[in-house]
Design a protein around this nucleic acid. Sequence first.
DNA 1: CTTATTATGATAGTTTTACTATCTTTTTAA
DNA 2: TTAAAAAGATAGTAAAACTATCATAATAAG
Lengths: 225, 225
Amino acid sequence: MSIEIRVSPNEGLYLKEPQDSNLGRKIIQHSILLIDEYGFESFTFRKLAAEINSTEASVYRYFENKHLLLLYLVNWYWEWVNALIIINTMNVEDPQKKLRIIIQSLVSASEDNPGVEYVNESNLHNIVIAEGWKTYHTKEVDDDNSKGFFMSYKNLANAVSKVISEIDPDFKYPYTLATSLFEMSKDQIYFAKHLPKLTDISVKENDLKDVEAMLNYFVDKLLKK
Amino acid sequence: MSIEIRVSPNEGLYLKEPQDSNLGRKIIQHSILLIDEYGFESFTFRKLAAEINSTEASVYRYFENKHLLLLYLVNWYWEWVNALIIINTMNVEDPQKKLRIIIQSLVSASEDNPGVEYVNESNLHNIVIAEGWKTYHTKEVDDDNSKGFFMSYKNLANAVSKVISEIDPDFKYPYTLATSLFEMSKDQIYFAKHLPKLTDISVKENDLKDVEAMLNYFVDKLLKK
DNA sequence: CTTATTATGATAGTTTTACTATCTTTTTAA
DNA sequence: TTAAAAAGATAGTAAAACTATCATAATAAG
């Protein structure tokens, strides 16, 4: 028996579902590698096409532009985190335990999982940290939002905020705390790597135990049992 | 008597200090307005030049490129916040009071102050929220950091972390908390405006009292007196 | 007041990016 | 076996992000 995890971002993000074809999967795989290596700005469909021995025109048949490709990848990532959380919290009743597992899942989502061969989760995690904000800090954010392009993240935030309210029904800002956990996790990892004066944690060779401990520390102080 | 507040970002950011000439001040003033209105991506030196009846070449004599201009503006903003904090916490001894004033200064820094005619602080605040990320989420971050281009923000984080440690010397993550206060403030305001499902606060016609209350709520829970 | 220097303006050119278009060849599925 | 869908090859366009050069205007120094 084998369990196949298939994660599907919003339909409006692509012209043709890339996971359904060879070329599509190569686009996903190598765009992740290229964006992580060179950054989103210097990533172009031309370079991607060259890398996979295809053509610019062919890539454009899957994604209207590179912004939508990035949105697709980032949504894929949050769907992935969501899937991990669902699997790991199955049959766990205690909301406090649940939140610990959520934090642990959030952190471990950055480890490569061989289950999906065309996605390197570790590289994708780097992209979400370094480039993810580009998906929503645009002038088109309201438009994109109305098309459902941030659904994966919103669903996740909603699920986590519910667990927070279960632990402490009097806590005034469950959504703020949920999103802050995600954003802090990203920010503090990035700071640790590039602007270490801005954080107390350290991340050596992608060991994220400090991040996990830090998030748990904050949550424990904020939520009364 | 009049107090002149002059805020100066790092020298490496410009080719010629824009605050020292008429054209330079017009560049600052109108780049803030244009970037806020149309977003950083569609902002170009050509459009800016047209707006101020100058030329692209002239703008390039002040800033090497638009990335450095954005860095300049964002640094200006954090210097400005820093100045407000210094003024407002003068002669305040109690660290808890200090932190409240810091939070209040952080929030009120977004109000336009007629003291500096060529800077609209309110528009600049929008830019820091919407585009500030672009200053440090780049492939050149380590380079830029080594040139001191993030000094203003780092100084601020350092100052705030010290106040945090004064309040609660046992708190494990003073730097993380300091930067999280800044980042949460930006994120949650942005979410309130564009992705309201991701936050509990609301920001109506730029009234930031919810943000201030939220930040104080978190701080109160996190730091034992 | 004149002159040298510096600041700004006018204009043109280059490379790269982000597409769009069109036509041909290959693959796949009925 | 054939038609239709997918992919490849190639070319073209508009705008952005500069770079370069020369002319003119403002200013400051002697």
